[in-house]
Amino acid sequence: MKNRTLVKSLKILKYLCIYYLSAKMICFAIPKFLFMQFRILHWQSYAPLVEISKHQHMWSFFGRSYHYNLFIGLTEFLIGILIVFRRTRLIALLLSLGVCVNILVLNIEFDVDFAINHVLLDLTITTLLLFNYRKDLYKYFIQIGGKFDNSLASLESKFMTRLPYLFIVVLSVSYFIFAFGIKKKYSVNENIVGAYKIHNIKINDSIVGLGQGWQTKDPMLFVEYNNQFVLSITDTLFMGRYIQKNDSITIYMDYPNKFDIKSINGLMKNSNSIIGTTSENRTFQMIYKKVDGQNNYLNNLYK
């Protein structure tokens, strides 16, 4: 009785691991389809190469190409699908082994410390599940090199036969809706996202001294996809956030800051100025010009 209970418990644990690995691969794949995972903020992209971390080096490399993200995402999505079917599980596990080892090496070598434990868990599960195939793998790759044993395992119940299809469809559709909802939550006019050179800032018609930007020779404005608003002036970054609708924009600056401004309500005129008033009832005007894609590829990348 104890042996039967142990066998049944191990079988349940095995399927929990299979579906956990499937869910994780699918949930990491879908954000790549929507180009949500490897994003470099515009203000970070202006840091000199020697100043950025190994982590940022790797992240910017993967974020350079949507099609490369699509390739990685399709591989992960394929693993997530194939692993839940008995006939294709071995293919998925072999793919997963290669993917997990590659990600582990990248995370270690590029100091992505927060992700090492996650991929170690995936690699451990993959290795343990592959252990059941050790004799078949040895026979196929070493002994007979190319011959397959066509004997079929005992037929599964109707529920277990249909469960993989149900799991893949429900998880993929629901997580896509969830990820798309997150993306829409931070939805902005894509045309305003980017890096800008600031020509001048006036508060109550007085010109503000801007100096150089943080890590840049010119004073800069960065409007990020995640509703982050960054001023790079006087060798300092001043952070904030924005809400934009049509031509209207509301900016909330982290306080205190150089201008002693808590918020700004204004209009964006012809994509080269913001004119409005501050929460302190002062007039505010900023004139700027967007950096084109030839000088900063990020301005064209996320459209």
Rank of each mutant, 00 (worst) to 15 (best):
T126Q: 02
Q228I: 08
F159V: 08
A153F: 15
V193C: 01
K245R: 10
L163H: 08
K303Y: 04
I30D: 07
P219H: 14
S232R: 04
L106G: 03
N295K: 10
F33M: 11
F61T: 13
Y302W: 08
Y19L: 10
D292W: 10
I72C: 04
S273V: 01
R89W: 09
R162Y: 12
Y196E: 06
S60I: 03
K202I: 06
L267E: 15
T250P: 04
I182P: 00
Y242L: 04
M58I: 11
S273N: 10
D122P: 02
V188N: 09
L221R: 11
S96P: 04
I83A: 03
N300L: 09
L74K: 04
L13H: 06
G209F: 15
H199Y: 09
I198K: 10
T277Q: 01
S22P: 00
Y242G: 06
W214Q: 07
Y66C: 00
K135A: 08
N102F: 08
N296E: 15
A47D: 03
S172K: 03
T216C: 00
K184L: 11
N257K: 03
L120V: 11
G213S: 10
T126I: 12
N281V: 01
V84H: 09
A195C: 03
L120C: 09
L95Y: 13
V173Y: 01
I287W: 03
K197R: 15
L16T: 12
E224S: 06
I182D: 12
F222C: 03
L128E: 07
V173L: 06
E280C: 00
F61G: 04
L221I: 08
N257L: 08
Y186P: 06
N150D: 09
F238T: 11
T250C: 01
D254K: 05
K185P: 08
R86M: 02
A29M: 06
V101H: 02
L16H: 13
Q56H: 12
D205Y: 11
N189F: 02
V50L: 07
Y15R: 10
L130K: 02
S151G: 13
M239I: 14
N132R: 13
I177A: 12
G209T: 11
I26L: 10
A153P: 15
K262G: 15
S206N: 15
I182L: 07
E76R: 03
F131E: 01
N281W: 03
G194L: 00
N300H: 04
Q294H: 12
N204V: 10
N102L: 11
I264Q: 04
N296P: 11
N191D: 14
I81E: 09
T5F: 15
Q294S: 14
G145L: 01
S96T: 02
L120Q: 11
P256H: 04
I116W: 05
G276V: 02
Q244W: 05
Q37G: 09
I79G: 07
N189A: 13
I177E: 02
S154G: 10
I116E: 04
A153M: 11
I168Q: 05
Y20D: 09
D247M: 04
G73Q: 02
Q215Y: 08
F110Q: 07
V193W: 03
K8L: 12
R87C: 02
T216P: 01
F131W: 14
K197S: 13
L128V: 14
K197W: 06
E51A: 14
K303A: 05
G293Y: 05
K32C: 05
V208Y: 13
S9W: 15
